[in-house]
Design a protein around this nucleic acid. Structure first.
Lengths: 124, 124
DNA sequence: TAAGAATTGAGAATCCAATCTCAAATCAAC
DNA sequence: GTTGATTTGAGATTGGATTCTCAATTCTTA
């Protein structure tokens, strides 16, 4: 049995309303904008719970803190700003990536990560 | 001033002779095949030194221990085996990746990571 | 080969994300 | 509302990679 709690609802809503993947500290910070704060342990527990439910996915980018986003955003990739370190979604993909691997390697999935400067940082 | 030592020479040679990126423990293990062992701290210090010299590069793959390879291997990408967790080089690339990012984002570089099962693990 | 500077090795210490602890609070069902 | 199960929060703890410590060793130059 599992309960629906104010904290979990807030955490899920924050993830759904964000246009980019969020780190646990990001989530905690946003969740604490309102009245009561939320413990970091609670954020981690909720993320684990939603992951197990298949409602969110983990986004791991080298050089960035692991972050999370809703699982229903379709196939896409990520951009990380070298200045502010924020992770952004980028739509689209390319074909024939599997062809890069040696013939006797089985490719199950792929990630494309773009590194650069985001619009905000680029404008100073 | 910096000295050339047996340990650093061994470490660099191990990296150059490997056909895949190696982790610090990998390097230490291989360096200790011969007579004298090498301390892990020494491995980390040498890697830091070679990085500063621009002779090697860090390869970061989510889910894998950070590993290193010579900097002169040209543009390529990586494959990580989901079973043995080893990281392999894959040659080739695809074009127009920069086009995936929003127009006001500047793309400086990219990474492609393939996840799957390597030849050895695929053959049991 | 003498001397000063850099490096090494082993283990301790640090760092930091993630997990655990446990009493207090919250939830769902009756 | 009562009750028992689940969840929360704060801080302590863990785990694993990396760095630090410092005496001993190695290297370079002269």
């Amino acid at each position: 049995m599992s309960y629906s709690t104010r904290q979990r609802e807030v955490i899920l809503e924050i993830l759904q309303q964000s246009d980019r993947p969020l780190t646990p500290p990001d989530i905690r910070e946003r969740a604490s904008q309102g009245s009561a704060g939320i413990g970091l342990a609670t954020v981690y527990r909720a993320l684990k719970f939603f992951m197990a439910q298949g409602m969110i996915v983990l986004v791991e980018i080298p050089g960035a803190v692991p972050c999370y986003e809703p699982a229903d955003r379709g196939h896409h990739h990520h951009f990380i700003c070298q200045q502010c370190r924020l992770v952004f979604d980028v739509q689209g993909c390319v074909h024939d990536l599997e062809a890069l691997a040696p013939r006797d390697f089985q490719v199950q999935r792929h990630d494309i990560i773009l590194y650069g400067v985001c619009a905000r940082c680029g404008a100073q």
